[in-house]
Design a protein around this nucleic acid. Structure first.
Lengths: 186, 186
DNA sequence: ACCACCATGTAACAGGTTACATGATTAA
DNA sequence: TTAATCATGTAACCTGTTACATGGTGGT
């Protein structure tokens, strides 16, 4: 029984992108930003920190490519071991944890804020969710069929964003209602 | 113009709980777990690390209480400065960032997995979301009116969890459909 | 003349987790 | 006698961010 290699989600993301071909850190950053990027885009410093580790651990190899007109770059290629590590990470059952968003704390301690401020917070959440919906709907069009399952992650984002707008609408009304009638109508 | 004190969300959470009365680290941990806990429960080591910092920065004071039958404890009380810092944190407009859940990566790279594994992942997400819904519905009953706005955070959790189940249901069907007809019906 | 793109990295910091360590009291 | 409650903390580790640093090429 071979030892299972533990990798982090970010390492899995990079290895996953590398299954699509040899890439540089620069390439990976852009691939992460454009393709799956709305849900997983590590800082570039993180990417450049992780890549050498992948090589050290045997999950990828790198080679220098000297260019005439551009800076020298490192191209990374996933190894067999890297594929195995990725595979076992992908096969692990996913864990979901409910959100840990600042807005929840601000609402929870709402008694300490003017209701108007609370409402403006809720409206901001709604505005951001609406903007995301537009962005994702556009993405859904352009990226049609580029990857076999990418659309399902976009739908995840859409469901999430729609849930946020629903919640924001309900919450806004509820706060306004309590302003008028602060007593609980039980 | 007085300098604004920057505090983290966890510090805000602890200060918020302290507005309800003098508490020990132990009390705070339990308060965090039970009241708002489903969306913000720091590890206890984090709580015990943050509390002395709050004192150092002038946001809280502490006093030792020697007990006969129990270990000596530190009770923390929020200061005027602490209230100001909390207030300005609460008034800052909230930022939302869409989710960064491992399931999304596993779906995104779904081509690397057997469809059956993918489906089992989706089912697990659904199961966890359903469990959360039950938990929150129960919470909604018991905690009725304990805090003025706590119920709105519970509804946030419910909207989120319902969105997850909707997504999971749609996704499961979609994957099954693609198993039968892998060509895209555009 | 200026800006965007290509390309890699370091340094400093922030925020978080799990596991370990200790030890009395009280209820089942 | 066994387990939960009360009560505080340390140590090791991991993951992540922003800001800084460098410098040529190609398009407007």
């Amino acid at each position: 029984m071979a030892k299972t290699y533990e990798i982090s989600a970010t390492e899995a993301a990079l290895l996953g992108l590398l299954t699509r071909g040899e890439m540089s850190g620069y390439d990976l950053q852009h691939a992460a930003e454009t393709s799956g990027g709305f849900f997983w885009a590590p800082a570039k410093s993180r990417i450049y920190a992780v890549l050498p580790q992948l090589v050290t651990r045997g999950f990828a190899t790198s080679r220098s490519v000297v260019q005439e007109t551009r800076p020298t770059k490192q191209l990374y290629r996933i190894t067999r071991t890297g594929r195995e590590a990725l595979q076992s990470w992908l096969e692990e059952p996913p864990t979901m944890e409910p959100e840990r968003a600042p807005i929840l704390l601000k609402i929870y301690f709402g008694e300490l804020l003017e209701p108007e401020v609370l409402i403006s917070h809720v409206r901001k959440v709604k505005a951001e969710a609406t903007a995301l919906i537009r962005r994702l709907e556009a993405l859904e069009q352009e990226a049609d069929g580029e990857t076999p399952y990418g659309d399902l992650t976009i739908r995840h984002g859409l469901e999430w964003a729609r849930a946020m707008t629903r919640w924001a609408n309900g919450t806004e009304k509820e706060i306004a209602a309590r302003l008028v009638a602060p007593a609980k109508p039980s």
